[in-house]
Simulated assay, not measured.
Amino acid sequence: MISSEKEKISIIKIGGKLLDNPLRLKFFLDLLAQWKGKKILVHGGGSEASRFSQQLGIEPQMINGRRITSEKDIQIVTMVYAGWLNKKLVTALQMRNCNALGLSGADGNVILAEKRPVKDIDYGFVGDVKKVRADFLQLLLKQDITPVLNAITHDSKGNLLNTNADTIAAETAIAMSRFFETTLIYCFEKQGVLTDVEDENSVIPEMNKTLYQQMKETGQIHQGMLPKLHTGFDALQRGVHRVFIGNETILQGKNTLFTQLKQ
């Protein structure tokens, strides 16, 4: 009998201060390399890009956890995201016998985006995802290659664009759900969505959209958590099976605190 069940895949996004902590990053990469089944890693790197910008005398601008990207900024984030950080992660995975390939959106035309139109805010060279080439990623996965995607996309007109890495992860998970039973995992320095940012253990085990809206209105959720929750709920509505938010210990799969999003 031929099974109609889809093969499983995990789209794992790493960001926040987790990328900045060598010991925690090492632990995350150890767990990721051992992770069973097919996987795609998506990474941010905003704090690293901000530090580099400040060294060059350019002060980063953020609105609701999203970066305003000027012409100078797009050069900086491309160097940091698609260069240093991407290759650092790929090299670390190779050392752990996990064959990885680093990709920006322009490589293999894997992520096509369009420049965000100016409405209330001009985000500059920021892209909104139009298409993720799930077929291309599937070819890599069939060769036991783990794609490592960064936040740089392109518009097919010769322009590189900065796209929020949470969005990249969600759109990739949505695209891959055509072929796989897809789990989306956001990994950062906290154990999940917190009711009190000062209390590391005040994790909300399950979160629905109503609670999200309530906490957003009261200001309990703001800045970098907003894109995770917005894109996470969107992913659930568009075919992704499960969405989790937590720190690196979520990859251990047991006895850990984390938040699961529910429709």
Results as ranks from 00 to 15, higher is better:
Val129Ile: 15
Thr167Met: 14
Asp199Lys: 12
Val197Lys: 13
Lys17Cys: 09
Gly224Ile: 06
Leu257Lys: 13
Leu139Gly: 14
Gly105Val: 04
Ser4His: 15
Leu18His: 03
Leu89Ile: 14
Lys209Pro: 03
Pro147Cys: 06
Ile11Ser: 06
Asn99Val: 15
Tyr186Glu: 06
Asp144Gln: 13
Glu206Phe: 14
Leu251Pro: 05
Val126Ile: 06
Val42Met: 09
Asn164Thr: 09
Val110Ala: 04
Leu261Asp: 10
Met207Lys: 05
Ile168Leu: 06
Leu56Gly: 05
His154Thr: 09
Tyr212Arg: 03
Leu101Met: 13
Leu25Cys: 07
Ser47Asn: 11
Ile221Glu: 01
Leu25Ser: 09
Phe188Met: 05
His222Arg: 12
Asn150Gln: 08
Leu257Asn: 13
Leu41Asn: 05
His241Gly: 07
Glu48Met: 12
Val193Thr: 03
Ile145Ala: 07
Glu198Tyr: 09
Gln220Val: 10
Thr167Pro: 00
Asn21Cys: 08
Ile9Met: 04
Gln213Ile: 14
Phe233Lys: 07
Lys115Asn: 07
His43Pro: 11
Glu217Val: 10
Gln237His: 12
Lys254Ser: 12
Gln220Ala: 14
Glu248Trp: 13
Pro22Asn: 06
Glu198Met: 08
Thr183Arg: 08
Val240Thr: 05
Lys190Arg: 11
Thr69Ser: 08
Ile250Ala: 08
Gly102Tyr: 02
Leu18Asn: 03
Lys130Pro: 02
Met215Gly: 01
Gly37Trp: 05
Asp30Ala: 05
Phe244Asp: 06
Ile40Asn: 01
Asp128Ile: 10
Lys157Met: 08
Ser177Thr: 04
Leu56Arg: 05
Leu137Phe: 07
His241Ser: 13
Gly15Glu: 03
Val240Trp: 02
Ser3Pro: 07
Gln252Pro: 00
Arg24Lys: 15
Leu257Arg: 11
Thr182Ala: 09
Asp120Gln: 11
Lys8Thr: 08
Ala134Ile: 02
Phe244Ile: 10
Lys26Ala: 10
Lys36Asp: 15
Ile185Asn: 01
Gly15Asn: 07
Ala106Trp: 13
Ile11Thr: 02
Asn162Glu: 01
